[in-house]
C-alpha cells in the first residue's frame, strides 16, 4: 500500500516538473491536469490505507476541479487569440 502511495506521489511530482519546464501553455495545462488526476489517485489510496472512506469525496473534488481548470484555460486562450 505504501508502495502504491509512493508511486502515485512520484507521478504527482512529475506533474510539477512539467508545469515548471513548460515550454508552452498547453504543456503547463497538461501538468495541471495530471496534478488533478494523480492527486485524486493519491487521496483514493489514502482512503484505503486509513480506511477512512469519506476521503473518496475529496478525490472527486480534485478530479472535477482539474477538469474545470482545463476548460477555463482553453476558453481564455481561445478568446485572447480570437480575431476581432
Amino acid at each position: 500500500m505504501i508502495v502504491v502511495a509512493a508511486l502515485v506521489l512520484g507521478s504527482f511530482s512529475a506533474a510539477l516538473i512539467r508545469i515548471w519546464r513548460g515550454p508552452s501553455g498547453a504543456d503547463r495545462m497538461m501538468g495541471a491536469q495530471l496534478f488533478g488526476s494523480s492527486g485524486a489517485a493519491t487521496v483514493l489510496v489514502l482512503a484505503a490505507m486509513l480506511e477512512d472512506w469519506s476521503l473518496i469525496d475529496v478525490a472527486l473534488v480534485f478530479a472535477s476541479l482539474a477538469a474545470v481548470t482545463v476548460v477555463a484555460f482553453v476558453e481564455r486562450t481561445e478568446r485572447a487569440s480570437m480575431p476581432q
Binding site: S24, A26, M29, M30, Q33, G36, S37, A40, L44, I56, A59, L60, A63, S64, A66, A67, V70, V71, V74, T77, E78
Partner: peptide
C-alpha cells in the same frame, strides 16, 4: 469517480489538442 475522471480526461485532452 472513474467515469468522471475519464470524461474530464477525454474532454480536456481534446480541448488542449484543439487549442494547440
Amino acid at each position: 469517480i472513474w467515469i468522471f475522471v475519464m470524461i474530464a480526461g477525454a474532454i480536456s485532452c481534446h480541448l488542449v489538442a484543439r487549442e494547440a
